[in-house]
Structures are given as C-alpha cells and as structure tokens.
C-alpha cells in the first residue's frame, strides 16, 4: 500500500530545473531513501512535499488524499513530520519546549482555556509530557531535557530535531540528511534509531542521505536523482551498481 505518492512533480527556479518530472512512492512501513550528488534537487523534493514550494507540474498524494495545493501548516496535522538539513530548532527555548511544539497538532484547547489554565488544559499538558518522555527515553535525551538549544553541541541538536518530529507522532517522517556532520558512533546510533522508528513504531520514513553505508543499512528502496531528474530506483545494491548512477557521481567528481 502506498502511503505517499509523488506523481511527475517538477519545479524550476528561473531557468534551472531543480526537480524535473520525478515520480516515486513510499509504501506503508518502509524506509525510502533519495540519493544524489550535491544540488541534485533532494531537499527541493522535501520542500515540495512539505508544501514550502509549489510544484509547477505533477501531484502529491498522501494517504489517498491530494495534498498538492495544501498550505505548509496543514501538512503536519495529516501526520507528516520533517527535519531540516541545516537544523531549524527554536534556539532560545529548552529541549523540552522544542519537543512540546512538536505536539502542536495534538492540542485540544484554545487560547482562552489556555489563559485560565482550565483543568482540561492541565490534563492535556500532562498527556503531552507523557508522550514526550517516551521520545526522550528512546533517544537518550534525558541529560538535556531542560537545556537551551543555543548551548547544545551539533550532534545533540540533530537528535533533538529528530525527537521533535517524533513528538508529532507522524505516519511519515521526512529526514533530510540525518547523519550529516555526525561522528561514526553518532551515525551508528542514528541508524539503529531509524530502524526502530520503522520496525517498533511503525512509522514510514522518507530520507535523504549521503552516507552510503547508512543508506544500505536502513533503506528498503532507494531513488537516485541528478540534475532534478530520476536516474534509478531499486534496492540499495541495485542503485549503487547502476551505471547511470556511477556515471553521475564520477562525472561530478571529474568536473
């Protein structure tokens, strides 16, 4: 069953075709990875799905519903959470507050109830914290719970961003280069977490990643793109050995 299907989407910035007629689908329960050289258009695909960019052609369907024309803020409530390649956290808030923002789509009270902090609001707050405590335990973030983001090391921020997207309790998780900038050990942790997110939590994952060993370890299927166009789809091994893909990577390195 396909959870997300992307059907022939394109977008161009001026004369540059950043994404050109790309189609793929993410099946329920799988880890699907997009690979490609720098500037291939991977992050742009993410921004199209999370509706920051409008595609010039094509359609995006999630859970049987056409989401091509929705607003960016209407995506998370459907159950799609994402991280950003360059980490977009709320820097002047604590880790806990960041994760609580992730719970936004599960809120039930309005601002008047909030101002009077009615008993229902208190119950809701306790529930949010129970949900978040599970994420904190899962990702070993206990030592940082009340720390400001602005003072945290890069590797921890990466994990906090993953935690915030998990706090959404999404059906589909979009991870833009979850291992970039991480050490070997941190990358290994990330790989285990992604496996657990898929297997134990039953969340489908769409990922962009450059680290091929991580890709091979966690991905069910891989799509390779270059210059915005699709090169190959298949298992990690198939894609890695595809002549077009090899040429795209080598061609770039020579240039």
């Amino acid at each position: 069953m396909s959870l997300l299907s992307v059907e022939g989407i394109s977008i161009h910035f001026g004369g540059l075709k950043a994404v050109d007629d790309v189609s793929f689908e993410v099946r329920e329960g799988e880890v699907f990875t997009i690979v490609g050289p720098n500037g291939a258009g991977k992050s742009t695909i993410f921004n199209l799905i999370s509706r920051f960019y409008d595609p010039s052609a094509g359609a995006i369907r999630f859970d049987g519903r056409d989401i091509t024309r929705l607003k960016a803020e209407d995506i998370a409530p459907l159950g799609i959470a994402r991280t950003f390649q360059n980490i977009e956290l709320f820097d002047h808030s604590t880790v806990l507050q960041n994760l609580l923002v992730g719970r936004h789509r599960h809120r039930r009270s309005n601002f008047v109830a909030n101002a009077f902090f009615l008993p229902s609001v208190r119950r809701e707050e306790v529930e949010h914290r129970e949900a978040i405590e599970k994420v904190i335990d899962f990702l070993d973030l206990q030592p940082y719970r009340n720390k400001m983001i602005a003072g945290l090391p890069y590797g921890v921020r990466k994990v906090v961003e993953l935690a915030r997207s998990l706090a959404c309790e999404p059906k589909l998780l979009l991870l833009d280069e979850p291992a970039s900038g991480l050490s070997v050990e941190e990358t290994q942790d990330m790989a285990f977490w992604i496996e657990d997110i898929q297997k134990d939590m039953g969340v489908s994952v769409l990922m962009v990643e450059h680290d091929m060993s991580l890709v091979a370890q966690v991905s069910d299927r891989v799509l390779a793109i270059d210059h915005g166009a699709m090169l190959a789809t298949g298992t990690p091994a198939e894609v890695q050995n595809d002549p077009l893909v090899i040429e795209a990577y080598l061609g770039r390195e020579e240039a």
Binding site: F52, F84, E88, G102, H104
Partner: peptide, 11 residues
C-alpha cells in the same frame, strides 16, 4: 525563533 519550522510543525 523559526517561522519555517513552526509551519512545519503545523502552526
């Protein structure tokens, strides 16, 4: 702190 990720969280 970040309008972009506020929107991505559904705000």
């Amino acid at each position: 702190d970040s309008e972009v990720s506020a929107r991505a969280m559904g705000i």
